[in-house]
Nucleic acid binder design. Structure first.
Ligand code: SF4
Ligand code: SF4
Lengths: 151, 151
DNA sequence: TCAGTATACGACCAATTATGTCCGTGTTCA
DNA sequence: TGAACACGGACATAATTGGTCGTATACTGA
């Protein structure tokens, strides 16, 4: 419960990997998969999804592969998760048609919707660049981000 | 992905229901289940779990049922989710033994652990009382809570 | 031009998890 | 004593996730 799928996980890793290598023109799905031990075909599908959503640019043929479509700083973790796993909701209601059938009697969906928004906000405030920058030198103080939650 | 289980959902609803009725000595699982249309036996098991974790007090026999073990203000949504669904992690690693096998090569687990902490913080800052108070009068300004995220 | 390398995409399968039911046991009270 | 309740394990089923396969298509460079 409340767990990121591995697909989203893999997607984030791949984007981070690309963000760390801005000099290379393109990296193939296999290259990235091998670097981490991710199933190559699965990662390929994930990268294809990200391409369709406009987060990556793809290039077939020899020396082809994927490259970031935008700057690493302008891609948020939220976008990635959204692209891979679809709309982001922590509850089963709110997702259009097929929600849970006790939505009318439910009294906690509004508060939970706020929580949902807050978590989405957290995810939106994290960029691929944040992930890539992270592990560098010990002396760099990462700037804290603030998120507001109103029940 | 990143979705609350219905069990946790039901648990929160039940606790809120109890919090709104502090006068009654105890309410049976069936009472609460009927009020919302939740499967009674399933809710019963959830309430039993919450009892084992010390969030509820139970009383068998006629006119028995469940009551809050603590004040509604001192029970956080985090505790409830923890009691029902077990340890709270957004990633597959960090959960003791059986995590994902690419933990050593993974480069995003530290940042994600911070995100995990942040989300846990959000959940911890929400009490059952917050849920119960919510829908009252329109004029009451709910106080916003602040959560800090440091990548 | 053609072989090799790569993406694109849908169908399919296996493993896991979530959801819910059944049933027998023990407890309390009128 | 019996009705109404909690307790808890063992199922059964549905939904989701994680992963594979096969094939078509696109691009490159020798
Ligand atoms: S309606 Fe209530 S019970 Fe149903 S999914 Fe939404 S929050 Fe959960
Ligand atoms: S180790 Fe990395 S890939 Fe594996 S679960 Fe943790 S964050 Fe995800």
């Amino acid at each position: 419960m409340l767990k990121l799928t591995k697909k989203a996980d893999y997607g984030l890793m791949a984007l981070k990997y690309l963000a760390e290598r801005p000099e290379t023109a393109a990296l193939s799905a296999k290259d990235i998969a091998d670097a981490y031990g991710i199933p190559a075909q699965l990662l390929a599908k994930i990268l294809q999804q990200l391409t369709r959503k406009g987060l990556l640019k793809s290039h077939a043929g020899m020396n082809g592969g994927y490259a970031l479509a935008k700057s690493a700083g302008s891609i948020s973790a939220y976008e990635v998760i959204l692209a891979i796993d679809g709309p982001f909701f922590i509850t089963s209601c709110t997702k259009g048609a097929n929600g849970c059938e006790l939505t009318p009697s439910c009294t906690i969906k509004e508060p939970l919707a706020r929580v949902n928004e807050t978590i989405a906000g957290v995810l939106k405030s994290i960029s691929i660049q944040d992930l890539a920058e992270h592990e560098h030198q010990p002396g760099h103080a990462p700037e804290p981000k603030l998120v507001t939650l109103t029940i």
